[in-house]
């Protein structure tokens, strides 16, 4: 590698900027504490996307005794785009299973809502990814969060410096919000799990497609601010077929055959990261989120189902995130 004066200067400046950004980020800027004394996680085995998912999910949800009777439940899947053959969205069968389960648990209403980050035609994504068909069959309403009525909301963490965000009324009025990510690596944030999935509640009609201001103000910081302001009450993560490599759009499918349930988004994301062979403590928004949004330490997380097994080899990431892999894990260079 050529290491000339220009490269040296650029690298030094980059390191200095990175160090100072890290110092700034590490300063606590949250005005709310949601971290419970203990969190609960259940890792469920699910071999494929089949009609059997509802039974698996229902048995898993029963472990938590959620108390959603009479509540308005908002399911927030990760719907990005439709690319034939790619596994980039939360699977519609898992979302359908969740709808049925929450209805069985006595929810007053169940709504599915999402605001895709790049694709403005949400209906196109729904139609082509078979969501539309599933939702129609279940007669469950879908709200395009990019185009909902908006309410000004004071931020409960200010890592980005943003004091106020316009948020969809549907999100603010839901009693019980379930983040349903598809487990993926992400070329800007390392991973995209239940916390990063909350970018989808930020409305495109105000902030654009993509929601560039969140990237501009810092992705890790934005994840913390959004999750502090919009509490995630429960997580159902689709890790049946996950994605590794150049996610969130152009990675490769990686079957894990698991669904991860949790009553805490930090514990959920830490568990998913471990399943991916990545160290959650090295993922900035998970580590920082553990100060006030949930539990990262395994001692404070009760495993209700099977134990978390690390994969034979950690998930591939783009080079910038190779440092995330768990200590001792081997690394495959593609």
């Amino acid at each position: 590698m050529k290491f000339d004066r220009r490269t040296f200067l650029t690298t030094s400046l980059g390191l200095a900027a990175g160090a100072s950004a890290g110092a700034v980020l590490n300063r606590a800027k949250f005005h709310v504490t949601r971290r419970p004394p203990r969190s609960r996680v259940a890792v469920l085995k699910a071999e494929s996307y089949s009609p059997n998912l509802e039974a698996i999910l229902h048995s898993g949800l029963e472990l938590f005794q959620l108390g959603v009777q009479g509540k308005t439940v908002l399911l927030k899947p990760n719907l990005v785009d439709y690319i034939p053959g790619s596994h980039i969205n939360t699977h519609p069968l898992l979302v359908a299973a969740a709808v049925e389960c929450f209805r069985r648990l006595g929810a007053k209403s169940v709504v599915v809502g999402e605001g895709p980050g790049h694709q403005r035609d949400t209906q196109l994504v729904l139609l082509e990814s078979s969501f539309d068909e599933e939702l129609r069959q279940l007669k469950v309403p879908f709200v395009d969060l990019n185009r909902d009525e908006l309410v000004p909301t004071r931020m409960l963490a200010t890592y980005t410096g943003i004091q106020r965000l316009w948020l969809p009324r549907t999100v603010l009025e839901a009693d019980f919000l379930v983040s349903m990510p598809n487990v993926k690596t992400h070329h800007w944030s390392g991973v995209t799990l239940s916390m990063k999935n909350m970018f989808g509640v930020v409305p495109g009609a105000k902030y654009g497609w993509p929601k560039n201001i969140l990237h501009w103000k810092g992705i890790q910081e934005s994840i913390l601010d959004v999750c502090a302001t919009v509490p995630v009450h429960f997580v159902i993560a689709d890790a049946i077929v996950a994605m590794e490599g150049n996610g969130p759009l152009n990675g490769h499918p990686r079957p894990l055959n698991r669904i991860v349930l949790a009553d805490d988004p930090v514990a959920a994301d830490a568990t998913c990261a471990r399943l991916m062979g990545l160290d959650p403590a090295r993922i900035t928004h998970i580590r920082m989120g553990a100060q006030f949004l949930g539990n990262l330490s395994m001692e404070r997380v009760e495993q209700l189902a099977e134990a978390v097994c690390e994969p034979v080899s950690p998930f591939e990431t783009v080079p910038e995130f190779w440092h995330l892999r768990l200590a001792g894990a081997s690394h495959r260079h593609s």
């Binding site: 993509p210 201001i213 501009w216």
Partner: peptide, 13 residues
């Protein structure tokens, strides 16, 4: 042109 002032240019705006 950007969607929101003081961010990057995007195709639709």
């Amino acid at each position: 042109w950007p969607w929101v002032p003081e961010t990057l240019s995007w195709v639709v705006p």
